[in-house]
Design a protein around this nucleic acid. Structure first.
Lengths: 198, 198
DNA sequence: TTGCAGGTAAACAGGTCGGTGTACCTATGA
DNA sequence: TCATAGGTACACCGACCTGTTTACCTGCAA
């Protein structure tokens, strides 16, 4: 298999191949041989960069880690925009569930590095919600953040078994009800008061 | 391994063994040899009852299928009781996620029988919610049923990566807010007004 | 030119997978 | 008494798994 070696390093290509195959077909369903072949790299080289499949799995999950940072956009928009992103993901056709939850499910072992990475990611998003909720001066931002996190997780799992993108809209509508009930109907101090909704 | 053959049929023991091992360790992580050994049955016999592992998987999921029927108890209690059951499951220690979602994740293939069974089960619970919501004369029972389903799914997934039973209470609180917002604050026409909560 | 780092291809080791083939055992009922 | 259904024990098959070894190739710098 011919691969343009100048475009990216071997390590990067291996990681890209692992991401594609692990997510699409499942971690346990894909062997290291397949990953090496997809990356256009010999198995020896793969094991040079990642000493074991478990290391590769951990690297795959870590690479998927996107550091969330609340932006300057209106908090409510940011929160609800999350669900719009979900809807786009569901409609994409290549959606196969949350990679972190999938890894935990597939590996089973709670002591596997993947379990810790998954927990870290989920907690990061929960905190991201909480910061935005504090900005909205919502009641009990911590509890509400957990509930929004549950809605996201539920939309992901539901869309996995029933591939309906509209599930994201259902979750979004529920989130709006929860936000309203927590007294976050409108931003208290919006960055730009004239900005219209969405 | 000595097994009391009079207690249950071979088929039942095989199914019980599959249930225990598949759920605890994962479908892909458990071989048919292990299931046969756990059931105290030869592999030949196992293949006599279940011609392939896929058949056994389908039987395992079907056997987990509990037919939900709305009872005469107050509808709101029934709905919220669902989340209390979740909390007990999470606290049990042997919780390993939703078996249907796990099967879909582990098998990957959307054409596998497991995918259909999972979908059937989820839809059944959604309808169960809807019937109860209609009884409560809630606004848009269909949409709200989907949202409650998402909450359940989200609690299951969240508890899988972060084993905190309190997540069920968070989901329950969110469900209460959604119910209230849909005008289902109290049962409008309870079946037997004097009947106490079961 | 030489030396060598870093890559390749391919075979191999030791094990597990789903599934089959074979030969033996045993309880039951005609 | 004997046939048979249904079970057991166990070796076996080919495929695939993670991970290692071997031997060779190639670009580049001293």
């Amino acid at each position: 298999m011919k691969v343009d070696r100048s475009v990216s390093s071997s390590a990067e290509r291996i990681l890209a191949a692992a991401d594609k195959l692990f997510y699409r077909q499942g971690i346990r369903a894909v062997g290291v041989d397949a990953v090496a072949a997809e990356a256009g790299v010999s198995k020896r080289t793969l094991y040079n960069y990642y000493p074991s499949k478990d290391d590769l799995i951990a690297a795959y999950l870590t690479a998927r880690f996107r550091h969330l940072e609340p932006s300057d956009a209106p908090a409510r928009e940011q929160i609800l925009g999350n669900f719009d992103r979900l809807e786009r993901m569901f409609a994409d056709g290549s959606f196969r569930g949350c990679p972190y939850v999938n890894a935990v499910t597939e590996l089973g072992d709670p002591k596997h590095a993947a379990a810790g990475i998954a927990l870290q990611f989920k907690e990061q998003r929960r905190v991201w919600f909480r910061v935005l909720l504090e900005r909205l001066q919502a009641r009990d931002p911590d509890a509400l953040a957990t509930q929004l996190q549950i809605l996201v997780e539920g939309a992901l799992a539901s869309a996995l078994v029933r591939g309906d993108p509209a599930l994201a809209r259902s979750a979004r509508a529920a989130a709006e009800v929860l936000l309203d009930a927590a007294g976050a109907r409108r931003p208290v101090r919006s960055v730009r008061p004239t900005r219209r909704a969405r």
